[in-house]
C-alpha cells in the first residue's frame, strides 16, 4: 500500500523564467489528479522533476513526499515513482516477456515463478501467449498496455502519466484510459497526469488543475474543477500561493 503523494511548494524555472509557479498538492492513493496545460508549458518537466530526471538547465524548488518518505533528493531509481510516457519505450532488443521480466522486482525468485507472473500480467492485458513476441510486432495499443504493465510490475508507489494517450487513436484511447485508471486505482497508487486533452481529464474523474497565464503574463495554476464526489482531495492551493511573480528571483 502506498502513501499519499505530496508536492510542497514545487516550482520550476528555466533561465530565470518561471514555468511552473510554486504550488502544493496532495494526492491520496487511488486518486487521479490532472494537470492541464498547453504544450511547452513545462508540464512534462514537472513530471521529470518528480521522477528525479530533470535536466540540469532547469531550476526546480520544493519538496516531494510519498507517505512519510521524502524523495526530493533521492536517486531516480530509488524513488519508486513510475512515469508512463507518450512513447512506450519498450526495449527493442528484448521480447515482450523479457521487457516485463525486466520490470518485475527481483525478489520474485525462480525462473518458473517469474515466467508465471509475466504470463499472468500478459493475460490481464488480453495478451496471453505474447511473451516470446518481438515488441515491434505489436500494435500501438498492445505496446502501450505492455508499457504500463512493465511499470506496475516494478511496484511503484506513485504513478505519473505524461500524456500517455496522446499517440493512440480515439477508440484505443478510451480503452487504454480505462485500462490505466483501472489498474492504478486497483493498485492503490496516487496518480498525477499531465495532458492538454480535456477528455483525458474528464475520464480521470478526479480533481483538475489548470496551468495557465495570469493577466500579467506570469504562469499560474488554478483549480479548474474538483468533483464534489471526491472531497477527500485537497489538491488545489491556497490562493495566496498560486500567483507569485515576486518570487521569480528567489526561485531562479
Amino acid at each position: 500500500m502506498s502513501g499519499t503523494l505530496r508536492l510542497e511548494r514545487v516550482s520550476i524555472a528555466l533561465e530565470g523564467r518561471m514555468l511552473i509557479p510554486p504550488f502544493s498538492a496532495s494526492i491520496p492513493p487511488g486518486q487521479v489528479v490532472t494537470l492541464m496545460g498547453p504544450s511547452g508549458s513545462g508540464k512534462s518537466t514537472l513530471l521529470s522533476f518528480l521522477g528525479g530526471t530533470i535536466a540540469a538547465a532547469f531550476r526546480a524548488a520544493g519538496r516531494v513526499w510519498i507517505g512519510e518518505r521524502e524523495v526530493t533528493e533521492e536517486l531516480p531509481e530509488r524513488r519508486r515513482i513510475g512515469i508512463l510516457f507518450q512513447d512506450d519505450l519498450l526495449f527493442p532488443h528484448l521480447s515482450v516477456g523479457e521487457n516485463l521480466a525486466f520490470g518485475l522486482r527481483p525478489r520474485v525468485r525462480g525462473r518458473t515463478l517469474r515466467a508465471a507472473r509475466v504470463e499472468a500480467a500478459l493475460d490481464e492485458a488480453g495478451l496471453a501467449g505474447f511473451a516470446a513476441r518481438d515488441p515491434a510486432t505489436l500494435s500501438g495499443g498492445q505496446r502501450a498496455r505492455v508499457a504500463l504493465l512493465r511499470l506496475l510490475l516494478a511496484e511503484p508507489e506513485a504513478l505519473l502519466l505524461d500524456e500517455p494517450f496522446n499517440k493512440l487513436d480515439t477508440v484505443l484511447r478510451a480503452d487504454f484510459r480505462r485500462f490505466v485508471f483501472g489498474h492504478a486505482v486497483a493498485a492503490g497508487l496516487p496518480v498525477l497526469m499531465v495532458t492538454h486533452d480535456r477528455a483525458d481529464a474528464e475520464a480521470a474523474n478526479g480533481p483538475v488543475l489548470e496551468l495557465g497565464t495570469s493577466a500579467d503574463g506570469a504562469p499560474e495554476i488554478s483549480a479548474a474543477c474538483v468533483p464534489p464526489a471526491i472531497d477527500a482531495v485537497r489538491a488545489a492551493v491556497p490562493s495566496g500561493e498560486i500567483r507569485s511573480p515576486s518570487e521569480k528571483g528567489a526561485v531562479g
Binding site: S48, G51, G52, T53, L75, P76, E77, R78, R80, I81, G82, I83, F85, D87, L89, F91, P92, H93, F102, G103, R105, R150, L151, A154, P156
Partner: peptide, 25 residues
C-alpha cells in the same frame, strides 16, 4: 538517454541499465 530514464522509473541505476539495455543494442 530515454531508455535509461525509462529504466530509472523501473528502479534501475544507470550503470546496470546501461549494461542491460544499451550495450546489447
Amino acid at each position: 538517454a530515454r531508455q535509461l530514464e525509462a529504466a530509472a522509473m523501473l528502479g534501475y541505476g544507470r550503470t546496470v541499465a546501461w549494461l542491460k539495455l544499451v550495450l546489447p543494442q
